[in-house]
């Protein structure tokens, strides 16, 4: 398959990644060869085969809907790059 640097950039944008031009060209080439290899799956007839998304199928797990406190606010904020002590802080979104 053909995958160019611009395609890699488009996918990177979808994944919220930024890659430079040289890396994009290099990655596009590697991705194309990996996707070519993956295309061998087309040799398998999967007509009427149900996809298997997890080894654990058809299980619905419910628990009692009771409120509980798992973590304190301090514990959750402790790993944040920037907080005001109460909330996560990010650069201003609305001008």
């Amino acid at each position: 398959m053909r995958l160019c640097a611009a395609d890699a950039q488009t996918i990177a944008t979808l994944a919220r990644l930024r890659i430079d031009e040289a890396t994009a060209a290099h990655l596009a080439q590697q991705m194309a060869s990996i996707l070519d290899y993956m295309a061998t799956l087309n040799q398998v007839d999967t007509t009427d085969v149900e996809p298997l998304y997890s080894p654990v199928e058809h299980v619905s797990v419910l628990r009692p809907d009771t409120p509980q406190v798992d973590f304190s606010r301090e514990a959750i904020l402790a790993n944040a790059p920037q907080t005001d002590g109460e909330y996560f802080l990010v650069p201003r979104v609305i001008a």
């Binding site: 890699a8 994944a15 085969v49 298997l52």
Partner: peptide, 25 residues
């Protein structure tokens, strides 16, 4: 990047769903 590609619109059935079917096989 590859994971995003195989899940993206237009490629999902050809890659991800196909792989899940072969997984069952």
């Amino acid at each position: 990047l590859l994971g995003t590609y195989v899940l993206s619109a237009g490629y999902y059935d050809a890659y991800y769903k196909k792989a899940a079917q072969v997984r069952r096989r």
